[in-house]
């Protein structure tokens, strides 16, 4: 554990809490892609199966349980509790276009050809593209509430901090997880355009912003 990794995890937690509290307080999930949230719940589910097989640390276990619980709570709020506000007409990204290649790749490129490892790899690859329905929705509607942008900012920050963490771990302990690093870098690139717009538009007071 290093400071970059911890800050990354905290940033991830903040992102998830921002989204959950936004939906809860406004009693609305307008502008939120339910599909992206289902994909994230699937990411956590398939990655954290090792909760049952290997213990790493109390921190690790607690965070996994928290992420799982929060992601399922978010999906519940969107599709059950506040489903009347769910903007399904604009949440039209075809997730099969993500799932099919991701499933295929996880069978081709993994650390060992076992169900657990293939599911772990699937979760890593899926996480890198799971935000695409959300970004697609923002592009389609032309704008997002500033709170949604804060959510995306912290999600992107989490990814950027993980890259710094990997650089740190590579130099201090020789750690290099190729699958995680390559897909993590790809994932972070998706946020670059958003980051630029976030800084130039949201932080300079316009509140709302649109993606080109």
């Amino acid at each position: 554990m290093n400071i970059f990794r911890l800050a990354g995890d905290m940033s991830h937690l903040v992102a998830i809490l921002i989204l959950l509290l936004k939906i809860w307080r406004s009693r609305s999930c307008a502008g939120i892609s339910g599909k992206s949230q289902v994909l994230f719940a699937l990411v956590f589910t398939t990655r954290y199966l090792d909760l049952f097989t290997s213990f790493i640390s109390a921190y690790n276990t607690v965070m996994k349980v928290v992420f799982l619980a929060l992601s399922y709570a978010t999906v519940y709020l969107i599709y059950m509790r506040f489903r009347n506000s769910y903007d399904s007409e604009n949440d039209t990204f075809r997730v099969e276009f993500l799932l099919v290649p991701v499933i295929g790749l996880s069978f081709l490129e993994n650390y060992s050809f076992t169900p657990m490892e293939i599911l772990w790899t699937f979760s890593i690859f899926l996480e890198s593209v799971a935000i695409m329905p959300q970004l697609f929705m923002i592009t389609k509607t032309g704008e997002a509430e500033s709170i949604t942008n804060h959510y995306l900012f912290f999600l992107g920050l989490y990814r950027a901090l993980y890259i710094v963490n990997w650089v740190w771990r590579y130099h201090t302990e020789g750690f290099f997880d190729q699958i995680a690093v390559v897909s993590g870098v790809v994932q972070t690139i998706f946020y670059c355009d958003f980051f630029y717009l976030y800084v130039t538009r949201v932080l300079r007071g316009r509140g709302k912003m649109s993606l080109p």
């Binding site: 290997s54 490892e117 993980y162 997880d177």
Partner: peptide
């Protein structure tokens, strides 16, 4: 990479 059994990152 032989970290196949222990993924210690979240």
């Amino acid at each position: 990479a032989d970290e196949a059994s222990a993924h210690d990152e979240l």
